[in-house]
Write a protein that binds this DNA or RNA. Structure first.
Lengths: 183, 183
DNA sequence: CTTGGCATGTAACGAGTTACATGATTTG
DNA sequence: CAAATCATGTAACTCGTTACATGCCAAG
């Protein structure tokens, strides 16, 4: 089963840049939503995608800061993205130490187990709060555009709502699991 | 930030073997729940963990099939697992091509977009059905043990319920997203 | 005056996938 | 008779992380 074309990270970068032009630095901050990668992987890949014609680059000199390289997607890049969407879906990759710990939680002291669950709950409460703020911002800024399937904001909106739901769900489950320790 | 001790996959293997002894082949089938890995990664790691004293191994000759190696966790293995649980949580790794496609979905034809969402929905319906069957099986087999925090079945139960919820949620979200294409 | 943010890159290493290799039994 | 299941392993490769490298500015 040979993988043709680009890899998942490349498509993610193209997708981000189709929404708007930005620097590698900005991408590395925003990419966390669906494909976390470190800058050491992103920068070389942007260079490669630019060399292959999927992206164009403009160097913006700055004072007091290093120059920045603003990448934009090319016509070839957009075409490549569009062709990728109907391709068969790869199974998603999830590697979650927390779930691994849950599997072994019967070995832990109840206090340790409770701490683990409460920690996770706390973590996701913060996530939900942040996400909520972002979504409200988007709603006031773009309104009806968000639910229009051909607006560039649509995909972003769907994704953010999905993440919010995931995070709220994680909290619900933690609270459900904690009940077994209090009775 | 140096990582001490074993890696996530190693702990996952120890966790599985703490529940019950099994072969690398069996592990590779069950591991999908929280840490997918191919047999080519699992077999060498089991050998390494055995050499380091976390596991013991018994070779079971078989007729008509290759001999199998049944691994069991040692006292050192259990101790190591127990110490790992209270350690600070690593952030979970999610790399999901589907979410990346959602981000770029505004570029696709509506029919392509709808197909993508329906495919995903279908895929998770199957998952839910399978998971449901497994959970019902566990419930009839182990009953109250499932909700007892010190039973070996407890972690497994929590995990399976979490996965079920995740899968049902994915369906709900797909249906929600599909609505924007029908009006 | 130190921590964090902005901004980009390379080198060495560890983690994970794909393909190669073998071989009997059962099921369609 | 082909495909799937059981069962284990190695080699070559790609992907991803950690650490190294640089340097200015703003805030506490």
């Amino acid at each position: 089963m040979e993988r043709i074309g680009l890899n998942g990270l490349s498509y993610s970068l193209l997708g981000m840049l189709a929404y708007k032009s930005c620097t590698g630095y900005e991408i590395s901050k925003m990419l966390e939503v669906f494909w976390q990668a470190k800058h050491s992987q992103i920068y070389p890949l942007l260079i490669k995608l630019e060399e292959e014609g999927y992206l164009s680059v403009e160097v913006v000199p700055q004072i007091g800061k290093p120059d920045k390289k603003v990448y934009s997607i090319t016509a070839l890049g957009v075409e490549t993205l569009e062709k990728w969407i109907p391709n068969p879906l790869q199974e998603s990759i999830v590697r979650d130490e927390f779930l691994a710990k849950i599997y072994s939680i019967w070995l832990a002291e109840p206090t340790t187990a409770v701490k683990l669950l409460e920690q996770r709950c706390q973590f996701f409460r913060h996530k939900v709060a942040e996400r909520d703020k972002l979504i409200t911002q988007m709603e006031t800024e773009y309104g009806d555009e968000l639910t229009n399937p051909s607006s560039p904001h649509f995909g972003r909106y769907l994704l953010f709502m999905r993440k919010l739901q995931m995070e709220q769900d994680e909290i619900d489950w933690c609270l459900w699991a904690l009940r077994f320790f209090y009775q």
